[in-house]
Simulated assay, not measured.
Amino acid sequence: MSEIGYVRGDATAPQGRGVKLIAHVCNDLGGWGKGFVLALSHRWPEPEAAYRRWHRERAANDFGLGAAQFVQATPYVWVANMVGQRGMRTGSKGVPVRYEAIDAALGKVADRAVELGATVHMPRIGCGLAGGKWSRIEPLIEERLVKRGISVTVYDHD
């Protein structure tokens, strides 16, 4: 069984050959303006535009906690917008991260990665603005992706 690879660098510039799927966590409010999404938008307009459209048309689609949207940014790079946080700020109900939603979305990412024959790349999802703990997220990645033989690289930004 492979394991998660950790590298220093930018998850929007995934390393390696072949098709790459960049996974990251979004909120359930349609907000896109802080954290890793800014780096994504700086590189490609499509993931943000698709996410905003997906949220706007949510009455007619699967948008919600645990959903994942796949957006092709280049011929070899896809972005997975995973809805894994409720709201945007820490409040009386705790931090915005929702581990069950990230777990469900990672399952969809695994299916798509297998279809595409892709490797998966990500920052430490759910651990920035969402307030999650990597010690809770890492096992979800191992269970959903690594156990299926999918190569995963996690990027720690300098």
Rank of each mutant, 00 (worst) to 15 (best):
L65G: 04
L65P: 09
V152K: 00
P45G: 06
G117S: 13
A60Y: 14
S2I: 15
L116K: 03
K20Q: 13
H121D: 00
L65E: 01
G31W: 07
H24R: 07
L65C: 00
V71R: 01
R52L: 14
P47G: 10
G131N: 06
T153Q: 00
P75W: 09
G131C: 08
G33F: 03
S151R: 00
P14Y: 03
G91K: 10
V152A: 03
I22L: 03
L106C: 10
P123C: 11
N61W: 02
V83D: 04
V71P: 10
R89N: 12
A104D: 13
K133H: 14
F70G: 09
A118I: 00
G87Y: 04
D156Q: 11
H157W: 12
V152R: 01
A118W: 01
D28A: 07
R144M: 13
A110D: 02
C26G: 07
L140G: 00
E100I: 08
V71H: 04
F63P: 14
D62T: 15
P14D: 07
N27Y: 09
Y51T: 07
D62R: 14
D103T: 10
W44T: 11
L65N: 04
H24E: 08
G107P: 10
R148C: 06
I4M: 00
K93E: 13
F36W: 05
P139M: 06
